[in-house]
């Protein structure tokens, strides 16, 4: 087990290092010169050269990358004197636009993204697992068909389109929900809840459909396996067989998928946050893209990659614990 963990852990770290190099490389070679962006109006070639030097942009790629990694762990400072802004671990550099530390910009928005992700996850897990298990057990019934049809529809709907339809119906036509406006939970819990309800539903919509299909297929497959047939043949009641023996193996694939999906969402639901004007990491990403704020885009990319890689690792470990059929590979 220890060897397995070590190997997976090393691989995860390797992936992260590689992703950071590729990400850094893309911004290094493809993006427009950040010095020109910072320099702003009334800019001379000399000023640009000064800025490039100050930011270390005149150094070769590998040196810059190594410096980035060193700063990430050891921290650095932006500006000089008593007003310099410190950047401590995990230091992802400074935004070209707001001159704030990238990590503080991201971390201050993580709560919103997490709220979006958690609420949506609860909804889609509920709908997906319940629908999938019922569909799998009662395969071919009216329930199953209805579930599959709804899933097919919602899997085909792009979430920004669902967002518009929902807003049009619930806010404009039926007036069941107030127009979204940014409020703190402490100011108005009802408005706060109403604000998040639509993003939750919209996000959960597509995922629930995927999970329903996945769980359903998995349940059907598990039910056809030998050990369950044996259990049933031994005379155990059907409901007991399902609860005790079928569900756990049937739900293990869900764990894999959920780990990855949820991790990616923690790094911001770009489209949903943009459409609903929620000030999360996803909105930060799309705003930074329009402003060409490369350090922020890079920071978010690395953060999401980190989440996904860690989730992968956790899932791998959980898998060995959850599914009796999985043996640790040597």
């Amino acid at each position: 087990m220890a060897g397995f963990l070590l190997r997976r852990g090393l691989f995860a770290i390797g992936v992260l290092v590689l992703i950071s190099i590729i990400t850094y490389g893309i911004f290094f070679w493809l993006s427009p010169d950040p010095a020109v962006t910072i320099c702003g109006k009334a800019c001379t070639p000399e000023t640009i050269a000064t800025i490039r030097h100050e930011l270390g942009l005149d150094q070769p790629f590998w040196l810059q990358y190594v410096q980035f990694v060193v700063h990430f762990f050891a921290g650095t400072e932006y500006g000089t004197g008593p007003t310099a802004t410190p950047c401590t671990f995990p230091c992802l550099g400074f935004s070209f636009q707001t001159h704030q530390a990238v990590w503080s910009m991201i971390s201050s928005r993580l709560a919103v993204s997490a709220t979006v992700a958690i609420g949506a996850a609860v909804l889609w897990l509920l709908a997906g697992i319940v629908g999938g298990v019922i569909g799998g057990i009662k395969q071919g019934t009216w329930w199953d068909r209805a579930g599959l049809t709804v899933a097919l529809g919602s899997i085909s709907l792009p979430n920004y389109f669902v967002a518009l339809i929902l807003q049009y119906l619930l806010v404009v036509q039926l007036r069941w929900l107030p127009f979204p406006s940014a409020v703190k939970f402490s100011d108005s819990p009802t408005q706060w809840f109403a604000n998040y309800l639509m993003p939750w539903i919209v996000l959960a919509f597509g995922y629930a459909a995927m999970y329903l299909r996945l769980v359903r297929a998995s349940v059907i497959e598990t039910l056809s396996e030998n050990f369950l047939r044996t259990a049933r043949a031994k005379g155990l009641p059907s409901s007991l067989v399902i609860r005790r023996h079928a569900l756990r193996p049937a739900l293990t694939p869900v764990v894999t998928m959920f780990g990855m999906d949820f991790a990616a969402l923690l790094g911001g639901a770009v489209i949903v946050e943009t459409v609903f004007g929620l000030n999360g990491v996803g909105k930060l990403t799309s705003d930074s893209i329009t402003k060409n704020d490369q350090p922020v885009i890079m920071g978010v990319t690395l953060l999401v990659a980190f989440f996904v890689v860690v989730a992968n690792l956790v899932v791998d470990i959980l898998y060995t614990v959850l599914d009796p059929r999985v043996r640790i590979p040597r």
Binding site: T290, K291, N292
Partner: peptide, 12 residues
């Protein structure tokens, strides 16, 4: 041209 660098670009 992205909104942030538009004025710099046309001013160069």
């Amino acid at each position: 041209i992205d909104a942030a660098s538009f004025y710099q670009t046309i001013g160069t």
